[in-house]
């Protein structure tokens, strides 16, 4: 049973990590807690849902939905946040704008799609579960864990090993200086929005496939866990998102399996509050704990 529970925790943790990656990247480079991020997850899932219902294969629908979400993320960022960036408005203003935007978008999705739960057409992916060494694991679960590995490696490579990553890191550290040094910050902002939106969209599709539960608010639920994950990992840190996600997923599963399921959902938030008290910069945070 322990092996199965660890696997369960790994799968849940992978979904958290997958979600937190783009969220934390957005904060790390753009310096904004973008609350609309959760909505991108719902959006990706819905686009892929409609695409597969129209007969598209999931292997085409997945990248198409992810990219479309990425493009929408660029547009929304341009509408909501670029004006504030230009006006050099404080970070809490951006937080509030994305808060208002999220409320608006969820309400809209709610009116358009209703809160009824939906699922991908039966059979878009192989739903059989395989018995491996006494553990039950399904295709989508393997897919999610694989996606985490691929995405984390790709992001770390881009950030550490490319010129693009250098520009991004420069922008994260000193936006004004970076611009003086010739970094085209406007197009970098768009690129980061595209990457993050794509990540969120892909994550939404994978979660929708795994749990067969697509509804407008699916992103909001993840968002609450996402906060805990990125604070634990350290705001803006990619490794932090991975480790934080896996850790919280594992803790939740073990709490439910061996302590009491009533406290499963509290785990993330207890971790969040404890992190703030003990080590506000999180596991990997460096400058995050800027003292006022």
């Amino acid at each position: 049973m322990l092996a199965q529970q660890l696997l369960n925790g790994l799968v849940v943790g992978s979904t958290y990590a997958l979600f937190a990656l783009g969220f934390t990247l957005m904060f790390g480079v753009l310096g904004v807690i973008n609350l609309v991020y959760g909505f991108y997850l719902s959006l990706g899932a819905f686009i892929a849902l409609f695409a597969t219902q129209a007969g598209l294969s999931i292997w085409l629908a997945l990248p198409a939905a992810a990219l479309t979400t990425g493009v929408i993320a660029v547009v929304l960022d341009g509408l909501l946040l670029t004006p504030l960036r230009k006006a050099k408005a404080p970070e809490l203003s951006s937080l509030m704008v994305t808060l208002g935007g999220t409320l608006f978008l969820y309400s809209l999705a709610n009116l358009l799609f209703s809160t009824d739960i939906r699922r991908f057409p039966v059979g878009v992916v192989d739903a059989t579960a395989y018995d491996i060494a006494g553990m039950r694991v399904s295709m989508t679960q393997l897919l999610i864990m694989g996606a985490v590995v691929v995405m984390v490696s790709a992001l770390l490579f881009v950030m550490r090993g490319t010129r693009l990553g250098l520009g991004l890191r420069a922008m994260a550290e000193r936006p004004d200086t970076a611009e003086l040094m010739g970094v085209d910050s406007a197009s970098l902002v768009r690129l980061v929005s595209l990457i993050c939106g794509t990540l969120a969209g892909a994550c939404g599709v994978l979660i929708g496939l795994n749990y067969n539960a697509i509804q407008p608010y699916m992103g909001e639920v993840m968002m609450l866990k996402g906060f805990a994950v990125i604070i634990l990992g350290g705001l803006g840190d990619i490794r932090g998102a991975l480790i934080g996600g896996l850790l919280i997923g594992m803790l939740e599963t073990l709490t439910a399996g061996y302590i009491a399921s009533t406290w499963k959902d509290a785990v993330g938030f207890v971790v969040l509050v404890l992190t703030l008290w003990i080590r506000p910069s999180g596991l990997f945070g460096r400058l995050a704990a800027k003292r006022a």
Binding site: M96, V97, G100, G101, A289, K290, A292
Partner: peptide, 30 residues
């Protein structure tokens, strides 16, 4: 949602935000 967005976007230095705004302007982002 619209009220929040409009209030913050179109009055970022106005009555609403200007007064509470300035904190964080010079604080470095983590």
């Amino acid at each position: 949602g619209s009220i929040i967005v409009i209030a913050v976007m179109f009055m970022p230095r106005g009555l609403l935000i200007w007064r509470m705004g300035r904190i964080g302007v010079s604080s470095r982002r983590p």
